[in-house]
Every structure is written in structure tokens, then in C-alpha cells.
Design a protein around this nucleic acid. Structure first.
Lengths: 130, 130
DNA sequence: CTTGACCTTCACGCAAGGGTCAATCCCTAG
DNA sequence: CTAGGGATTGACCCTTGCGTGAAGGTCAAG
């Protein structure tokens, strides 16, 4: 399978696949002409990579989970001894996401606080002074 | 007042002040030698700029509020006819912040959903299946 | 003379790719 | 056998936001 077909089957672009390879998330054989050559299993691998990325993991995070990328991800993530590798990554990333959320929330609140007439339809601002 | 002193009094760096000027947030006279020369009022202006930025407004946002930067910001923001200019900016920026918060929150939840053993100490995940 | 503050201009940093380039390769029709 | 069109290659710059950093030069004072 060439890169174009893999991209199509995995629902992404050739550009992204080359990027993943450059980042060390993906490997490929080469034809004599230098074309990247993939086995059918690469489709699942790429889908796994993309799902993890879309969940908020970074390329670095995914890199630390390389060993599990060819398996069925939902199963592995739920039950397996990936814990040793995955637990740290997951905890750290969730913590980071929550930190970013907290920062943005404070930002939002401070903005609303500074411009009271904004009367946030969202939340807080001293809990709407309720 | 030269740029170094303004930076010190406003609690920032000379680099940032030149950057603000480059972005059109700040003006300066020049000495014959080309040194930036500021009036004492510039301190408040810079503080206002920095506060608005730290509240989550962008440089572009602040640019649209140029006319109010030399006044007492809390007062202006709370009561004045800045509304015309500021309301749109504020509403838009709050909306953008809330969108980013929503994106990150979904990301966090999807990650926790994928790695159930994370058992978020934070929130949601189907409200902790409570 | 030398130090220190100042000047401008260019480049870099993050994240995950997108866009575009010339050159090379493969397959097919004529 | 050959031309053409589509796919692929690596390499380069671009994106967003808010600055930071360095290089190389000018200015004022001790």
C-alpha cells in the first residue's frame, strides 16, 4: 500500500503521514524508487495515532505509547498493562488540560469582571452573584 | 522618561514596549538621537494595555480600545460609553474564550473516557456516573 | 575608552500539520 | 517507443499570539 491509499483509508493526508514518520510515530518500508510502502495494519495504527491526538495527547505522548499502537486501542486503553506507560501520560495530560481550562476560565472571569455589562450567559462571575 | 524607566515603572520589559509600539498600541516622541521619550502618563497606559492583555484580550482587541487606554480603566470599563467599542470586543472575546474552554473540556472528557482508570478528580465524565 | 542604555532588523519559539516546489517515478494509451 | 498524466519524494516556508533573543550600531557620561 502506498502513502496515498493509506491516507485515504485512514482518513487523513499524505502530508500528515510524512509528518508522523518524521516524528517517529510511524515507520515505512521503501520501494526501490524510494516510495513509502505500508502493510494493511498501518491503517489501524494511523487511526490509533489520530484518535489519541484528537483526544488531546501530544505527539510526544503518543510516542511514549508506541508499543500499543498496533493493537485495538479501546481494549488496550481500558484494561491492559499499558497502565505503566499510559497512566503517567494520561494523568499528566489530563492535568495539563485542566490547568489550561482553569487558566482560560480565570481569563474569562477576569474579563467579565472587568466588563460587568457582559453578564456572562455562561457561568460563575461569583456564581452570578446568586 | 526613557524606555528603560517606563518598562521598570510599568513592570514590563523594553522589548515588550517596542513590540506594543510596533503593534500600534503605544506611541512615543523621539529625542534627536532617536531615543523613545514618554510622558509620565504612559505608565498608566502601559499598565492598562497589560491588564487588558492579561484578561484575555488580543492585541487587536486592545487596538480597538485605544481611545480609552489613558483613562482609569476600571471606571471606564464599568460605566462609560466605551460600550459601543468595548461591548462587541468583550462579547466576542468571551465567546471565543468559552469556545476554547469547551474544546479543551471535550478533549479532557474524551481522554478520560478513553482511559477510564484516570477517574478524573476534576469533573464530568458523565458526571462521574453518579 | 569604556560601560551601559538605547537603536533597528531579523529570527526563533510553540503544535500539528498545510501549501507549494522541482524532480522523480509509475502506468497507460497511441 | 514515447509522451502524458497522476502519484510520490524531500525541502522549504506559512499559519496564531505574544512576545524573546541575538547581532551590530549609536549615544551619553565617567
Amino acid at each position: 500500500m502506498l502513502i496515498g491509499e493509506l491516507a485515504a483509508q485512514a482518513g487523513t493526508t499524505t502530508r500528515a503521514l510524512r509528518y508522523y514518520e518524521e516524528q517517529g510515530l510511524l515507520e515505512s518500508d521503501r520501494t526501490t524508487a524510494g516510495y513509502r510502502l505500508y502493510e494493511p495494519g498501518a491503517v489501524r495504527r494511523v487511526r490509533n495515532i489520530r484518535e489519541l491526538l484528537s483526544c488531546g495527547l501530544t505527539v510526544e505522548d503518543v510516542k511514549s505509547l508506541l508499543a500499543y499502537l498496533d493493537a485495538d486501542l479501546p481494549e488496550v486503553l481500558s484494561y491492559s498493562p499499558l497502565c505503566a506507560d499510559g497512566y503517567g501520560v494520561g494523568v499528566q495530560r489530563v492535568a495539563q488540560l485542566e490547568e489550561r481550562i482553569a487558566i482560560l476560565t480565570e481569563l474569562r472571569d477576569s474579563l467579565v469582571h472587568r466588563m460587568p455589562w457582559l453578564a456572562a450567559p455562561g457561568r460563575t462571575v461569583d456564581e452570578q452573584a446568586a
